[in-house]
Design a binder for these strands. Sequence first.
DNA 1: TCCGAAAGTTAGCCTAGGCTAAGAACTGTT
DNA 2: AACAGTTCTTAGCCTAGGCTAACTTTCGGA
Lengths: 149, 149
Amino acid sequence: MPTRRSTPRPLPPAKKQAARFALQREADRTATAEDYVELIADLLREEGEARAVDVARRMGVSQATVTATVGRLQRDGLVETKPYRGLFLTAEGQTMATAAKARHDLVVRFLIAVGLDAETAEEDAEGLEHHASDKALAAFARFLAEREG
Amino acid sequence: MPTRRSTPRPLPPAKKQAARFALQREADRTATAEDYVELIADLLREEGEARAVDVARRMGVSQATVTATVGRLQRDGLVETKPYRGLFLTAEGQTMATAAKARHDLVVRFLIAVGLDAETAEEDAEGLEHHASDKALAAFARFLAEREG
DNA sequence: TCCGAAAGTTAGCCTAGGCTAAGAACTGTT
DNA sequence: AACAGTTCTTAGCCTAGGCTAACTTTCGGA
Ligand SMILES: [Mn+2]
Ligand SMILES: [Mn+2]
Ligand SMILES: [Mn+2]
Ligand SMILES: [Mn+2]
């Protein structure tokens, strides 16, 4: 008998396809903010303070880039800075950070559950987390609940 | 007994974390090229030709943007153009397109297998595909093989 | 054949997110 | 109190990837 061929998926309607790409671009635009606020929250919790230098080191980016990016986050009402004493999150930033962290951890646990090694799971989660919809995250959570109890 | 708390994940070493973010940025940089060559390949296969105008419509982007982006793809040796007769893939572009399509389809099938509805799977796959490592894809394939036969 | 519509390009603009190099501002230690 | 070393900002640069408006080129039908 013939090997099961994957079904040839015809082109989606142009409008629908365009909408999907638009969603993707939207997610890309928010990814940096999510990563920054998540990192700032982690630093505040684990180290007691979130210095721009440390954000730069951990993001793998120059201090100048952090200054510029934090400027945008500030403009967008997510972050506050007290020069020479670190970065802080607004209520909105805190909310975003909490959601980002939950999402991040869920994605990591899910990837491990489907057989990925821990380090690769961490690597991939850093990117994947920004493109998993709420519905996808719910599916991941369901999957974990079912097989972990 | 207490609810199982998720393990508090301490901060990863700065270098490792920076490397993860770098990987993520790298994936972001190649995402557009992957989507374009995949779409061009799809159009060539399904419609016989890949016109810039159709790429613009399906990407949800202006024709001017397509001109500019295709210029970069050409510069990078992925695409060739015959004005007023469409876009074509170089051997390298074809290779990338084939890989992109395989990855895309695998991610869609995997998402559906873990319980996501088809349309959301298509939406999310458009972004997720660019951030799943080969190891992750292998894990997804394994998962599908196990439970689908 | 010719001429309007479609396809494609060009020009000029914008933002995000990178970089380096240089300077300013603060802090902790002596 | 001073100053060395950190931390942070500024200035100036770059590319990708968006946009609109206006132009040119081609194609096809009357
Ligand atoms: Mn991330
Ligand atoms: Mn994250
Ligand atoms: Mn995609
Ligand atoms: Mn795709």
